[in-house]
Simulated scan of single mutants.
Amino acid sequence: MSRRPNTSRRFGDSVGIPFVGALHTKSRQSPLLSIGLVVVGALLILGYVYHGSGGGSGDIAALNRLDGGVSCTLELQTLIPILKKAYGESMRKVLHIGPETCSVVSQILKEDDTEAWGVEPYEMDDADANCKSLVRKGVVRVADIKFPLPYKPKSFSLVLVSDALDYLSPRYLNKTVPELARVSADGLVILSGYPGHKIAKGTELSKFGRPAKFRSSSWWIRFFIQTRLEENETAIKKFEQAAAKKAYRPACQIFHLKPLH
């Protein structure tokens, strides 16, 4: 995923600042100085955004803006520590569904006493060696989530979904979301884009043959009620407490649901 920050700054005349005159003189003599200042400024801003608070989850919204769009999968990767605080033992056996699931699964596997599997809903044309290894081991599968998942009920303690449901029509959502809840024992966490937001370049092309359609929170809540899914209020409170300590600012909508059984 490329990031091309387009940052420029005009240095106006300032009275009382040493060497301003010399700076303007050298700028006229060599335009490379102005270009160099712009490049350095861009690098400093990018470094500040990412490292300003330790590269933590509070920076994800700024990182998404720099990229020109929102990736809920990228955001999910920053949320792993917060989710672990909120769900505790329910993070022991996790299934992730969404693009770049190899990266998400690899990160979750780094957590102590945590197992992870993934379902990639799109073709993996440029999978790296680590991802191919996870596929060979059966840890990651490539599957069309419009059809039933090849897992038994309650196979996973927690199911995480990102950048996948926004591409489905209501017809398929009615089948897919209950299916995701079926394989969960403790909870289902769904990340969805906000209406009016631009999707990140890495996930903007749908293999389902339709563009992403971001729905409002009220639309999702009505949908959950219709499909007999309840919000997990206990998990929501714990998540909000853990998020507040990390100064986390969401770039995507996050829904915490109870399993369907």
Rank of each mutant, 00 (worst) to 15 (best):
R4Q: 08
P5D: 02
N6L: 09
R10I: 12
G12R: 13
S14R: 15
V15P: 03
F19W: 13
G21E: 11
G21A: 10
A22Y: 01
H24I: 12
T25K: 13
K26Y: 13
S30E: 09
S34Q: 09
S34I: 04
I35G: 02
L37D: 02
A42T: 15
L43Y: 10
L43A: 10
I45T: 11
V49W: 05
G54H: 14
G55P: 04
G58P: 03
D59L: 00
A62H: 02
A62K: 13
R65F: 09
L66W: 10
D67Y: 07
G69T: 03
T73A: 14
E75Y: 06
Q77T: 08
I80P: 07
I82T: 15
G88Q: 13
M91R: 05
E100P: 00
V104F: 06
V104A: 15
Q107C: 03
Q107R: 15
I108A: 09
L109F: 01
L109R: 15
K110R: 14
E111F: 09
G118E: 07
E120L: 09
Y122R: 15
E123I: 14
E123N: 13
A127W: 12
D128C: 11
A129I: 14
N130H: 13
L134A: 12
V135Q: 12
R136K: 15
K137T: 06
G138K: 08
G138I: 06
V139C: 11
V142I: 14
A143S: 12
D144E: 06
D144S: 03
K146R: 15
F147H: 11
Y151F: 15
S155Y: 02
V161P: 02
S162F: 08
D163A: 09
L165Q: 05
L165W: 00
L165I: 15
S169T: 11
N174C: 01
N174E: 08
K175C: 05
V177R: 03
P178I: 05
L180P: 04
A181V: 02
D186I: 00
V189I: 11
I190C: 02
S192T: 07
G193P: 04
Y194H: 13
G196Q: 07
I199T: 14
A200Y: 02
L205K: 12
K207N: 10
F208K: 04
G209H: 09
R215T: 03
S218A: 10
W219V: 01
W219L: 01
I221E: 14
F223T: 02
F223L: 14
Q226Y: 00
R228M: 01
R228S: 13
L229Q: 08
E231Y: 04
A235H: 08
A235G: 03
A235P: 04
I236D: 03
K238A: 12
K245L: 14
K246W: 06
A247N: 05
Y248Q: 01
Y248F: 14
R249F: 08
A251T: 02
Q253R: 08
Q253K: 07
I254G: 01
I254Q: 07
F255Y: 15
H256F: 15
P259Q: 10
P259H: 09
